[in-house]
Amino acid sequence: METIKSKFENITEQLNQINPGIQVIAVTKQVGNERTQEAVDAGIIHLGENRPAGLLQKREAIHASVDWHFIGNLQTRKVKDIINEIDFLHSLDRLSLAKEIQKRAEKAVRCFVQVNVSGEESKSGVPAEEAVEFVRSLADFDKIQVIGLMTMAPISEDEGLIRQVFSGLKKLQMEIAEKAWDHAPCTECSMGMSGDYIIAAEEGASYVRIGTALVGTESEVEG
């Protein structure tokens, strides 16, 4: 079976040919501590989890200098549990969440505002047409630093549709960055997962979130 190290090297080489400097987040939600440690040993420095309990458990088990990314929907009542344990939040999508972060964070948190570019009802995120105003409204929250935007593409075989969603996020990111707001440098785009990270890179992603294509799943490991 191909190792995480070889997968990481291949993915990194692919991405650097498209967009040098792009960062790979290993999404470890479907694997245990051993597999996560293997990812760290392979040189991966960004780890992503989508549940507070999973993130806290991995953080306690993995003793390494890595950046922890919370990439899932964050319930307001769970903010107090993890906000001071993470390095990046990829799912800031409502004012009530911003207020709770402001209340609980001990220092400024690097946040991506999640934008629902596709308009799918099943997806979380600020509607694309409201994204600029939402980011502007965060100026009074000194515990929030909007470093970029995040989105998820539809699960679709239509590459054109996926590309349209990613290019839409990149356009919004550049529009906000041009405003040069102190609270929102907004230089980054978090987009692309196992099935579409190449398209995301081509459309300007600076962070891609890769799970199964990089670290696999526990059933795969057991098999």
Rank of each mutant, 00 (worst) to 15 (best):
I147Q: 12
A61P: 10
E203V: 06
N116W: 06
P127D: 11
F112M: 10
M1H: 14
M1E: 09
V126Y: 05
A131P: 03
M1D: 09
T12C: 02
E130Q: 15
G48C: 03
Q114S: 05
T28D: 06
G119W: 00
N50D: 15
N19Y: 12
G192N: 04
V146D: 04
R110V: 00
I22H: 02
A53G: 13
K29M: 09
C111A: 10
E175A: 14
V115E: 13
L138A: 03
E175F: 02
A153L: 09
T187V: 12
T76G: 04
G32P: 08
D182W: 01
L169N: 08
E60L: 08
Y197P: 05
E85Y: 11
A205P: 05
E85H: 14
G48E: 02
D196C: 14
V66R: 06
L138T: 01
N16F: 02
S65N: 15
V79I: 05
A139H: 13
S122C: 10
I82R: 03
S96V: 13
E130F: 06
N84W: 01
I44L: 14
A177W: 07
Y207F: 15
E133C: 11
F141D: 00
E203I: 06
S6T: 15
E85I: 04
Q23R: 15
I147T: 11
V221A: 09
L92Q: 01
E100G: 06
L55G: 09
R77V: 13
D93I: 09
C189W: 00
K99Y: 07
E121T: 15
S118C: 13
D93K: 11
V27P: 02
